[in-house]
Design a binder for these strands. Structure first.
Lengths: 333, 333
DNA sequence: TTGAAAGCGCTAACAG
DNA sequence: CTGTTAGCGCTTTCAA
């Protein structure tokens, strides 16, 4: 009749020990499979049985406090909307990390305040991955929080995602594809959303690089409003000067196509359009959108493995190689 | 020259106390703004200054171990791709929770293994929100982990998101809109992706409810493959029997439109189509897609407030009322 | 083979 | 007004 008044007290290893008639040490040994301990099979089973029966769960804070290491990895995401690409990446990364005993969580951070410091002190992650390089201050706060595995590393380099192959490579691949089709005057359609500005610039730089490598003039850079009429205006402004465009992503490409339709222009005849990300809507567009897709799951796995390596004390090797990205050829380019 | 060999030791409150020539207790009091303590302003400033200079950060595990409460909230997300809607929801929820001192992280969980139990014991969250009701086992594991604020609550009810207004309301609103336009024979286009099956069913049930309420026959239920040709097949199978369709979401609606185009059919003349979620691509479709949009930010705030209330010991009141969702009328219906 | 005990960093009751 | 102290639950040496 008398139900427990408050929330029932947590089941600790002491409870298990008492119930099993053993000491906490013994319990801890079997629960952690501590090597170099000769525990009789009978005792072992006894502990396991009692633990299960009592519903014992190790208590993370105590464990972390004692061992100095937590089992949490954090991916810090920017506040712009994430799509399938990121979802796949996270899924695979979580899987790889999980196999190594780490639990992956994500945290979206707009980058304004001191939010990240709060994150470290609320979570004490063992490893952190960010979509953009961390500032020296952020890096310092992580060091203080004792986080040893951080990606990307401090030196801006190829590891810097906003300039890495992962980002620039997309633009480069778009431009190379278009150039391969015989186009010589390109444009880059940049995203309207200010949060996407840096990414947009990164991808456009990749495209510019490809043009330079091919001895072509630099692409025209235009930011593309996400309204059909405004998009049409931008398209009109390109008249004759460009024959193909690298859109920041598929959403932008779709806006472009809509603007062109308004003007009575068709892709790829009047203007070739290539997108990025291969969202579900891309294949259903008219014309079906040619786009760049990424093996984001594979990238997630690589990130996870790099993080794990860093945890082991190695220096994180993170390479976003061309093999993780490819063109999906449809009709628009 | 000699750089510190290992990772420099963590700065603890003892360090601050020593440096400031005070005791840890005093330091703790000022750092936590403990009430009912009369600390001279001078001492207070001294502590703050030293703490800042040394770069002191409280250590979560110790704090949590001692106080029995963590500052972490977790949103458990299903493994299907999340879009803008969820991003907005999470952003706002994080903001509201942040103001209350809680840090929000998300974790994607496919629902297969014991992943959630691992999550609790790696994180010790104070509050948890899930997109779907938790199973009794999961609920039990949370209880054991001492998590007091959980949403949705145990009793399947309106709070059960897969049957709540949040989900069913979408389908209901789609159908009501279509019925309001004079349609009497509806179909529901369900998602192909098995991960989306439950959600799809929920939305379709809402639509069926609306038909029943209007004295109309139940809608035809068809799952729609995400391939133009296959989608066309489904559309063809509806011939004459349906004049309007509620698509699970905008991606499905776009596939539908593509299939119709193949058949030489146009919306809304031959078949009216309404989507859900209002993705960016919706407005650029031909014809522009009429869809149902949600005030997901507002919902995020409500979830956060309900969680906070639960933490205070109140019973979580979570209502997804009609005011969080509305039709965006464009051309396809 | 198992038990006793120390201590991780922090908070809060209790002394002084 | 400030310092001393007792644990929170866990791991892990060290002894028995």
């Amino acid at each position: 009749m008398s139900d427990n008044k408050k929330t029932t007290r947590r089941v600790t290893s002491v409870d298990v020990a008492r119930e099993a008639g053993l000491s906490r040490a013994t319990v801890s040994f079997v629960l952690n499979n501590t090597p170099n301990q000769s525990i009789p099979q009978a005792t072992r089973e006894r502990v396991l049985e009692v633990a299960a029966r009592l519903g014992y769960t190790p208590y993370a804070p105590a464990r972390t406090l004692r061992s100095g290491r937590s089992d949490v990895a954090v991916f810090v995401l920017p506040d712009w909307p994430q799509g399938h690409t990121m979802a796949d990446l996270i899924d695979r990364a979580a899987q790889v990390l999980g196999e190594a005993g780490l639990t992956l969580v994500t945290h979206v951070h707009a980058g304004e305040d001191d939010g990240l410091a709060r994150l470290w002190s609320a979570l004490t992650p063992a490893a952190v991955f960010g979509m953009r390089p961390f500032t020296p201050q952020e890096r310092e706060s992580m060091r203080r929080a004792g986080i040893s595995a951080v990606l990307p590393p401090s030196q801006p380099s190829d590891h810097d995602l906003s300039t890495s192959f992962w980002i620039r490579g997309i633009g480069r691949l778009q431009a190379e594809y278009l150039i391969g089709k015989g186009h010589t005057r390109l444009a880059c359609a940049l995203p309207d959303d200010p949060r996407l500005a840096a990414l947009g610039r990164g991808r456009a730089e990749g495209a510019a690089q490809a043009c330079a490598d091919a001895g072509l003039p630099a692409p025209v850079m235009s930011t593309l409003p996400m309204e059909t009429a405004d998009a049409a205006g931008v398209v009109a402004s390109w008249r004759d000067a460009v024959t193909a465009v690298c859109a920041y992503n598929d959403d932008v490409a779709l806006a472009l196509l809509a603007g062109m339709r308004t003007l009575g222009l068709a892709a790829p005849g009047d203007l070739a359009v290539i997108g990025a990300d291969d969202i579900p809507a891309a294949r259903f567009a008219v014309p079906a959108l040619t786009t760049v897709a990424q093996e984001s799951g594979e990238m997630g796995a690589r990130i996870a493995r790099a993080l794990l390596a860093a945890l082991e004390g190695g220096s994180p090797e993170l390479d976003f190689l061309p093999d993780t990205v490819h063109v999906v050829e449809r009709e628009s380019a």
